[in-house]
């Protein structure tokens, strides 16, 4: 088996002046690619404006947050949001 790409921890700052928060991890060969991957993986719904990446093995102690990331409504990909679909009330909860 060939060598696996290192694991990176991803921190993203939402748009309202919040601090960076841990949103998850991903694999990338280097830091530059990790940032691009983070953009593609973790900001598909416009969740952030600033990204930090840290190679996981450089983190000494971690206590990831427990509330999950903040989701800002996406401006151009509205179809990702459930309210885009008009489901009649008779159908019930979906």
């Amino acid at each position: 088996m060939s060598k696996e790409w290192p694991l990176w921890e991803i921190f993203i700052r939402g748009q309202h002046g919040l601090s960076h928060r841990h949103v998850g991890s991903l694999h990338a060969p280097d830091a530059e690619t990790a940032i691009m991957n983070a953009r593609d993986v973790y900001t598909r719904r416009n969740e952030g404006v600033s990204i930090w990446v840290v190679e996981a093995r450089h983190i000494t102690a971690t206590a990831p947050g427990d509330k999950g990331p903040i989701f800002e409504p996406s401006e151009s990909k509205i179809y990702r949001h459930p309210t885009f679909y008009d489901i009649p009330e008779d159908v019930g909860h979906m």
Binding site: R80, P82, Y85, I87
Partner: peptide, 20 residues
């Protein structure tokens, strides 16, 4: 659990687009 929280948020449009 955290992965599921993220997934559930994203899932919300999947079923609706199918029903649509």
């Amino acid at each position: 659990s955290r992965a599921m929280v993220r997934i559930c948020k994203e899932e919300s449009f999947h079923q609706r687009q199918g029903y649509d």
